[in-house]
């Protein structure tokens, strides 16, 4: 199944100075107009230089609470991640995804050893003793990303004036996201908004009481 960017409302963004950046909000809905949460919006400026990642930034944390990962976690390439365990039992965090393969042996450590995600792409993280624990980590080359909330809205903050290829990604997609060009005019100030209609193919859900995978269509 393909992801459809059926209707993109290209915002004509009203921005004032080149020094200033703009926040652009995107609303992601499905074909029926229902909002889609947990979609990751990200923008790749075509010309503006991508700011370098902060060299010694604090590691990101992915929490394991009640044997559950956060569903989606976008991050900049090169980010360091620690897995924090809030449970009273241990986990074995691993990934066999090509973008990042790692295994954190079974441990009850509250904070795991750091893992550096140095390749862009989707990393599906699991726990080898709890099959239903699934975390989708999207490693991006851009710092401009956001996750949609329950209303399907995500705000891309501080976009420089440029034409951006804006993408939307969701674990339910089985085809690569298609770019939507969004232009932020020089000197524009304030917010702009655009909408993306997204069609999802379905998701693998694993019931913790009966950990056999099912492909669930939305």
């Amino acid at each position: 199944m393909r992801t459809l960017l059926a209707a993109a409302v290209a915002a004509v963004l009203l921005l004032s100075s080149a020094a200033r950046a703009a926040d652009v909000a995107g609303i992601v809905r499905d074909a029926n107009g229902a909002p889609i949460a947990d979609a990751i919006l990200y923008a790749a400026p075509r010309n503006a230089p991508t700011p370098a990642a902060p060299a010694a930034s604090a590691p990101l944390a992915i929490d394991q609470v009640n044997a559950q990962f956060p569903f989606v976690t976008p991050m900049r390439r090169g980010s360091t991640v620690v897995f924090r365990n809030a449970d009273t039992f241990g986990h074995t965090v691993y990934s066999v995804s090509q973008a990042k393969t790692f295994t954190i042996p079974l441990s009850r450590d509250v904070v795991s050893a750091p893992v550096v995600f140095d390749t862009a792409g989707v990393v599906v993280v699991g726990c080898s003793i709890h099959d239903w624990m699934i975390a989708y980590v999207l490693v991006l080359d851009t710092p401009y990303y956001a996750v949609t909330n329950a209303t399907g809205t995500a705000v891309l903050q501080n976009l420089p004036a440029d034409t951006h290829d804006v993408y939307v990604w969701h674990p339910g997609m089985t085809t690569p996201p298609q770019p939507l060009p969004i232009t932020v005019a020089a000197g524009a100030i304030g917010n702009a908004e655009f909408r993306i209609d997204l069609k999802l193919d379905g998701l693998w859900k694993i019931d913790r009481n009966n950990p056999v995978g099912r492909f669930v269509t939305p």
Binding site: V124, I134, W204, I206, G213
Partner: peptide, 9 residues
């Protein structure tokens, strides 16, 4: 059968 890790890989 799919190789689930944790979704089909």
């Amino acid at each position: 059968v799919p190789l689930m890790a944790p979704v089909p890989m």
